[in-house]
Design a protein around this nucleic acid. Structure first.
Length: 426
RNA sequence: GUGGGUAUAGCUCAGUUGGUUAGAGUGCCAGGUUGUGGCCCUGGAGGUCGUGGGUUCGAGACCCACUACUCACCCCA
C-alpha cells in the first residue's frame, strides 16, 4: 500500500517525461499560430460551478466527481473537465472587456473523474485545450477544431477521424426532444429501464443506448440535424463549408452528443483506433449560453479538451517515435586524478558554450566511461589521460564513426560546437 | 457501479500432482593487459513470491477476503 500509487493514477517516469514535454510544446506552438494565450486555473473549484455548468443530471456530476468539504465547510470539487474553470475565470476577471474574441489555451491541466480505470482512462488525467470567447461564426468552430487536429497531426498520430454534429440551441432542441418523445412514446414499455428514465430527462440519450431491446425502435427516429432551426442550420452549413476550406475531412455523426449540458450547436470529437475499438483523442464544442449562465454577459464560446495520456498511448500503439535526443552532446572521459580535475573544468566550459556536457563522477575506468557513453548514445567523447595532459592536447572521438582526432586543448570547445552544428543539418 | 482474466527480480516471464537454500532471459555493477563503447566470456548485487488471513507436518502453488492491473458494459479525454 505504502509503495503503491492510488487506483487510476499514473507516474510519469524520466524515460517518458520528455514525450510529455514534446506534446506540450507542440500545443504551445500551434496555439501561438492562432494568437491564443495561456490560462492556468485552479485544480479545484466550488462544487456549485460544475453543478451549474456541466449539469446536475450528467454522468460526470452524478457519479464521477471528487467532491469534499474543506475545513471551512465549503463544498469543493476537483476539476472534472477543463471548460468550467476557464469560463469562471473569464467572468471573474472581466476578460469580456478585452478586445474580442479572447482566445485561451491550457496545457496539462489536471482533471479528475472517479470511474473505473482502463487503458487510456484514469482517475487523474491531464488535458490540453482551447477556449475562445466572443466569436460566433461556424468558421471559428472550424478553426478551433483544426487546432485540435493539428496538434494530433504534429504528434504523428494517423488514422484519426473527425466526427461533427449539431445539437441545436434552446430554440430548436426542445422541439427536437419532443419529436423524439413522440417517436418513442408508443414503444416505451418494451424498452430497457435506463431508456425509460432517459425518456423524460434527456431523450437525446435514447439514440445511443446499446441495449438490444431498444435497437429496433430507433429506426425512423428523427435526427437533430433535420430539426435544426434556421439559424442553427445555417451555422452548421457554415461550419461544414469552413472545414472544407481548411481541407479538413469530417463525417457528420449524429451519435456525438457529449455528456455535458452546456453545449449548443456544434459538437465534435477526434476519434482514433485503439486496441480492439476506438478512443476519443479530443472533444468539445460550442457553448453559447454558458458565460451568461455563470453570471457573465451574453457571450458565445467554443472550446475543446484533449487528453495527454491518450495522445501518448495512441501514438505509442501506432509506433510513433517520440524518443528524445541523447542526454548529452558530449562526455569528457578521463584517466587519473589530474585529468579528472581537468575534465570537470572542461565539461563546465562546454556547458558554458551551450553544449549538454558532463564527466565521470563515479571514478570509473576509462572502459566503463566509454560503455556509459555508448549506452546513452552520446555522439562525442573527449578523452583526457596522462599522455594528453602532458602534451596539452585532447582527443575528440566521434562515437558513431569511431574516428578520433587529436587537437590542442584550447580548440576542443570550438571544434565540438562546430561539429554539432554541422550534425544538425542533414 | 456490474461481470471475466491476471499479480513471482528494475523489465519480460518459467516454476511439474503442495516438498529442502525460488530460476531464466534482459537490464544494472565489476572483471577479462592499469588508454577505448557496440559483439563475446566470467563474476556480483538485486525477490516481504501484490497484501492479510486460512487449510496442511510443510504453501509461490490450494481456499477466502482485500488491493492493484487488465478486458467487456457504461461513459468519456
Amino acid at each position: 500500500m505504502l509503495t503503491q500509487k492510488p487506483r487510476g493514477t499514473l507516474d510519469v517516469l524520466p524515460q517518458d517525461s520528455a514525450k510529455w514535454q514534446l506534446v506540450e510544446s507542440i500545443m504551445r506552438e500551434v496555439a501561438a499560430l492562432h494568437g491564443l494565450r495561456e490560462i492556468r486555473t485552479p485544480t479545484f473549484e466550488h462544487t456549485e460551478l460544475f453543478l451549474r455548468s456541466v449539469g446536475d443530471t450528467t454522468d460526470i456530476v452524478q457519479k464521477e466527481m471528487y467532491t469534499f468539504n474543506d475545513k471551512g465547510g465549503r463544498s469543493i470539487t476537483l476539476k472534472p473537465e477543463g471548460t468550467a474553470g476557464v469560463v469562471r475565470a473569464f467572468v471573474e476577471h472581466g476578460m469580456y472587456n478585452d478586445p474580442l474574441p479572447v482566445g485561451l489555451y491550457y496545457v496539462s491541466s489536471l482533471v479528475f473523474r472517479y470511474d473505473t480505470p482502463q487503458a487510456g482512462r484514469y482517475r487523474e488525467h491531464h488535458q490540453m485545450g482551447v477556449e475562445v470567447f466572443g466569436a460566433q461564426g461556424g468558421a471559428l468552430d472550424a478553426q478551433v477544431i483544426s487546432i485540435a487536429g493539428e496538434v494530433i497531426r504534429r504528434i504523428g498520430i494517423r488514422d484519426v477521424a473527425l466526427h461533427i454534429n449539431s445539437i441545436g440551441c434552446p430554440v430548436c432542441r426542445p422541439q427536437y426532444q419532443q419529436a423524439l418523445r413522440d417517436h418513442f412514446a408508443s414503444n416505451l414499455n418494451a424498452m430497457c429501464p435506463d431508456c425509460k428514465g432517459r425518456f423524460e430527462r434527456n431523450p437525446l440519450r435514447l439514440l445511443d443506448c446499446k441495449d438490444e431491446r431498444c435497437q429496433p425502435f430507433k429506426q425512423g427516429a428523427p435526427s437533430m440535424i433535420e430539426c435544426l432551426c434556421e439559424d442553427c442550420a445555417a451555422h452548421f452549413e457554415d461550419l461544414k463549408a469552413s472545414l472544407d476550406q481548411l481541407g479538413l475531412p469530417y463525417c457528420v455523426d449524429t451519435n456525438i452528443v457529449r455528456g455535458l449540458d452546456y453545449y449548443t450547436r456544434t459538437v465534435f470529437e477526434f476519434i482514433a483506433p485503439f486496441g480492439e475499438g476506438t478512443t476519443s483523442l479530443a472533444g468539445g464544442g460550442r457553448y453559447d449560453g454558458l458565460v451568461e449562465q455563470i453570471g457573465g454577459p451574453t457571450m458565445p464560446g467554443f472550446g475543446y479538451g484533449s487528453g495527454v495520456e491518450r495522445l501518448l498511448e495512441v501514438a505509442k500503439a501506432q509506433g510513433v517515435d517520440l524518443s528524445p535526443p541523447p542526454l548529452y552532446d558530449v562526455l569528457v572521459l578521463s584517466m587519473g586524478d589530474e585529468a579528472r580535475t581537468e575534465a570537470f573544468a572542461l565539461a563546465a566550459g562546454l556547458r558554458e558554450a551551450g553544449l549538454r556536457a558532463s564527466c565521470d563522477h563515479a571514478g570509473r575506468s576509462l572502459k566503463a566511461q566509454f560503455k556509459y557513453a555508448g549506452k546513452l548514445g552520446v555522439p562525442y567523447c573527449v578523452i583526457l589521460a596522462p599522455e594528453e595532459m602532458d602534451a596539452g592536447v585532447a582527443k575528440l572521438r566521434d562515437m558513431s564513426e569511431g574516428s578520433e582526432t587529436t587537437l590542442p586543448r584550447a580548440e576542443v570547445i570550438r571544434a565540438l560546437v562546430y561539429s554539432l552544428k554541422n550534425r544538425e543539418e542533414p
